[in-house]
Design a protein around this nucleic acid. Structure first.
Length: 725
DNA sequence: AGCACGCCGACT
DNA sequence: GTCGGCGTGCTC
């Protein structure tokens, strides 16, 4: 049978290249198949390519099955995967399978609800049922108006499924795409002049690639601009992709979209969806049925045949970067997609990433500013620094902070005390011998959780009992050091016995019921003082807060991580934005030992641009991103010397062809020990992105060779444009 | 990634 | 004499 031909198949294996199989006839790229691979059934996807001529023809097996319940994956997705694989230096098969929903990653046909509608064929139209067949006649008449869903037809007659099945067999009925509902857009609040200007500028760029930075503080109405833009895109028959941080994909946000577009199908892709539901949303988007896709970083891969606009909300947010496996940045891929599809993309943020700021400066992105809070109090909160060097602290709280809390309590207004550290205290220590509660598996301290009476590692999850005496010297007087949310909660409760105090962190809102209860209490006005971590700062709306107190922020000022300042500023701006959304101007108090630090001065002035200009200059001076480009080669093993040897050998062998690329390391990672593994890293730096990628292209075969040669305990990974070092 | 093949220690 | 340790290498 020489009519068989070979096809190239991508598999979910961490190997570069494709595998060759025999197909009974020509099949298009994107076809999902089942193959026999190493004696196991595996799912594969066909791509363009030619068989390796050196391959022994006797080894080529036939395809085990061809899945045709869905059309082949679209060319735009395969193009994106080509780019992702090349840019992140990640095997193409593994990259593709990361992008697919779980239900399409397995060697099984996808099980989907049939959402196609029913229509009459020409033969059916010509064959009007007699009047005595009342159900048939009613269905026939209903179908005169065009395709109908089975749901609507069942309302005409309960026998609809049976009759239509019969008509289908007789060739009188056929399946059709359901009629798309007319666009309906509910009214929103009126736009102010800045919002209107942004809307006009962006909608003017429909139909071509143009990245926009929509920069506006909390409450300036970015979402309202998105909603108007989405309405424009939908009206033009286009689909819209909306990417949001994990933490802001809440029922409240989805409801806001659903309320505005009551009949538009919206595919919401969040992490708690079952495989089947995620598949359904993915396919609805792919088949053009969903008008809007809203989801977290993984949604950047969802195929959209009529894509007209991309929105990336909170584009600076760290959750848009995947930190394991395929380490992609969804914002960057979204920009690539917008370019590929020739559509505009809107990056929204109050505190854009410095990468984006640099792109604006270079003229690649265009910036639109929203400077006024769109509704209610048209003023920004007043931010004040409380210099703790000169003050006695009571349970970690200064006199001005206590006074401010007491004042709100008296006025029955809600306050928020923000401390970015959960648990009771971040470490316990022995004042006699200097022992501290270190994690045995990580280079971190165990955090005291008093309620559960455990010491817990926030990095690897390790838990152990709280020792009564110092394990090293037997001293009975070991003490908690520093503040966490739990300790702050009991301190505040002690200082304000009459206050209704509520703590919100990952520990107190572990399950959904607890979270709903928190939400209900806050909105029912049953809370006077909220205590929480960054869970409280981002995404969730807690209504009217008249006072926000920030504790323990100084740690971000002088960190080894050059991005710590950027993250701190962004977080503090968001926390500050929680104050004064109601009719009163809010107040923000930041307790600090560094009240003259320029970061805080910019915060007091609510001046992101001033902060960004200074920070960007410092990055250029110090040769840090975005002034240069980085890649990070990580290696971990049971013993540090294994990881170091691997990186050292790579560096030695790579030296001759590094060119203008500089290598730094090997050095221990920030968390030198994590979950019992020793971690080392090597940093690639280059002012020229292309030169860096040429270097990485050369590096990869060497890495794979050295990786195979090293012991099985060694693992390595490459992180292009790393955001965490 | 898996998984088999392959060559050296403590056990029925 | 075998069970099994994980080093090495391949997967169409």
């Amino acid at each position: 049978m020489d009519t068989f031909e070979t096809v190239e198949v991508l598999l979910d294996v961490p190997l570069h290249g494709t595998f060759t199989y025999l197909a009974p006839h020509a099949l298009p790229a994107g076809t999902r198949v089942q193959v026999d691979f190493r004696g196991r059934k595996q799912c594969g996807v066909l791509v363009d390519g030619v068989a390796n001529p050196a391959l022994d023809p006797a080894k080529i097996k036939p395809l085990a099955a061809i899945f045709d319940e869905l059309p082949p994956l679209p060319a735009a997705l395969l193009r994106l995967i080509d780019f992702v694989s090349a840019y992140y230096h990640y095997p193409k098969g593994a990259a593709l399978f990361t992008a697919l929903p779980t239900a399409l990653r397995v060697a099984q046909a996808a099980r989907l609800a049939d959402r196609r509608a029913w229509a009459l064929s020409a033969a059916g139209l010509a064959d009007q049922p007699p009047a005595r067949q009342r159900a048939r006649l009613a269905l026939w008449q209903a179908l005169q108006d065009g395709p109908q869903t089975i749901h609507d037809l069942r309302a005409v007659s309960a026998q609809a499924p049976k009759v239509l099945g019969q008509w289908l067999e007789e060739g009188k009925a056929e399946r059709a795409e359901p009629p798309s509902p007319e666009l309906e857009v509910a009214d929103g609040p009126p736009l102010n002049a800045e919002q209107q200007a942004a809307l006009a500028a962006i909608s003017d760029s429909f139909g071509r690639f143009q990245p926009w930075l929509l920069q506006g503080v909390t409450g300036s109405g970015k979402t309202e601009v998105y909603l108007h833009l989405i309405a424009c895109a939908l009206a033009a028959g286009r689909q819209v992709l909306v990417l949001v941080p994990e933490i802001s994909l809440t029922p409240q946000l989805l409801q806001r979209f659903a309320d505005r577009f009551p009949v538009t199908p919206i595919a919401a892709l969040h992490s708690s969806l079952a495989d089947g539901e995620r598949l359904q949303g993915w396919v609805d988007a792919w088949q053009g049925r969903a008008g809007i896709v809203i989801g977290t970083r993984l949604s950047v891969f969802v195929p959209l045949p009529r894509l007209g606009l991309i929105v990336v909300d909170e584009e600076h947010d760290g959750s848009l970067k995947q930190q394991d496996g395929l380490r992609y940045h969804a914002r960057d891929l979204a920009v690539w997609r917008a370019h590929d599809a020739a559509v505009p993309i809107v990056l929204g943020s109050a505190t854009p990433s410095l990468e984006t700021v640099a792109n604006v400066e270079a003229g690649r992105y265009r910036r639109l500013l929203l400077t006024t809070r769109a509704h209610a109090a048209a003023s920004l909160p007043q931010v004040r620094l409380v210099d703790t060097r000169l003050l006695r602290l009571n349970e970690g709280l200064s006199e001005p902070v206590l006074a401010a809390l007491a004042k709100r309590l008296q006025k029955r207004e809600m306050s928020l005390v923000f401390i970015n550290r959960r648990g009771y205290s971040p470490v316990i220590a022995c004042p006699q011998c200097g022992w501290t509660s270190g994690c045995k598996r990580c280079s971190s301290k165990l955090v005291l959780h008093l309620l559960q009476r455990v010491l817990r590692c926030h990095h690897c999850g390790w838990e152990e009992g709280v020792p009564r005496v110092c394990p090293d010297c037997g001293n009975v007087d070991i003490q908690p050091l520093g503040e966490g949310t739990q300790r702050l909660e009991s301190a505040i409760q002690r200082l304000f016995p009459e206050a209704r105090v509520l703590r919100i962190d990952r520990d107190s809102t572990r399950n959904k019921d607890a979270w709903d209860e928190v939400y209900r209490k806050v909105h029912a006005g049953e809370v006077d003082i909220l205590i929480g971590t960054q869970m409280l700062a981002k995404g969730h709306d807690f209504g009217a807060l008249s006072l926000v107190v920030v504790l323990g922020a100084d740690g971000g000022l002088y960190s080894a991580d050059f991005r710590a300042g950027e993250r701190l500023f962004s977080l503090l701006m968001q926390v500050a934005g929680r104050a004064g959304r109601a009719e009163h101007r809010g107040e923000v108090l930041v307790q600090t030992q560094w009240p003259e630090h320029p970061l805080y001065l910019s915060l007091v002035a609510q001046d992101f641009d001033g902060f960004a200009t200074r920070e960007l200059a410092a990055r250029r001076e110090a040769h840090f991103p975005p002034a240069i480009f980085q890649a990070l080669l990580r290696a971990d093993a049971h013993e540090a010397h294994e990881a170091e040897a691997f990186l050292g050998q790579f560096k030695a062998e790579a030296a001759p062809w590094l060119g203008e690329v500089a290598l730094f390391g090997p050095a221990p990672a920030t968390m030198a020990r994590l979950a019992g593994r020793e971690r080392m890293q090597l940093v690639f730096e280059c002012a020229d992105r292309r030169a860096l990628h040429r270097c990485l292209n050369q590096a990869l075969p060497l890495l794979e060779r050295l990786g195979r040669k090293a012991g099985r305990s060694l693992r390595w990974s490459l992180d292009v444009d790393p955001t965490e070092m």
